[in-house]
Design a binder for these strands. Structure first.
Length: 166
DNA sequence: GCGACAG
DNA sequence: ATCTTGTCGC
């Protein structure tokens, strides 16, 4: 009950539009280790609101054949009208004339989130689910938990045997 | 050439 | 993403 979090060194740089090539494997690998198959996975990044209409959430969903929602803290592509200031308010995100996602206010008077379908789900359901797992903070609880865990593991491993840098 | 640009 | 100073509200 240790190596399930074996350290992985990113071998691909962060390039807007190519996030899946940097973090895709680690995510798929992690999901593969779950003992309970998830009904749906929230991904920190874009779904179809992407230059090629296929962000990291789309990659994960298609490869694993499960529903996924892209939930990003900032915009990659698309135009939109600012949503109302209150929690729950949202507007559609458009790109090249098509609806590709939503700009969602997950907390009153705070910068909105960019939600877009990854796989096997539509825009409205994606917004509904993101809002359902958000309370008190701007970021949905599943992503907050993931951030806390990844940060702790990264700090705990820092400076340790480079041999773990598989 | 200049500005935009998930994490 | 990371770093960092100052301010705000519970």
């Amino acid at each position: 009950m240790e190596d399930v979090f074996a350290r992985k060194k990113a071998r691909f740089p962060y390039i807007p539009g190519l996030l899946a090539f940097r973090e895709g494997h680690a995510i798929i690998s992690a999901i593969g280790k779950l003992t309970v198959a998830p009904d749906l996975v929230l991904i920190d990044g874009q779904g179809i609101a992407h230059p090629e209409g296929f962000g990291i959430a789309s990659h994960i969903g298609v490869i694993l054949g499960i529903p996924t929602i892209g939930c990003a803290k900032s915009r990659l592509v698309g135009e939109y009208e600012a949503p109302g200031s209150m929690k729950g308010n949202w507007t559609y995100l458009y790109h090249r004339g098509a609806k590709v996602g939503a700009v969602v206010r997950t907390r009153s008077f705070v910068k909105p989130l960019f939600v877009s379908p990854g796989h096997l789900i539509d825009i409205e359901s994606s917004v509904e689910i993101v809002l359902e797992c958000t309370s008190g903070f701007r970021i949905p609880e599943p992503l907050r938990a993931a951030d806390r865990l990844s940060r702790k593991l990264r700090n705990d491993y820092s400076g340790q045997s480079p041999a773990l840098d598989k």
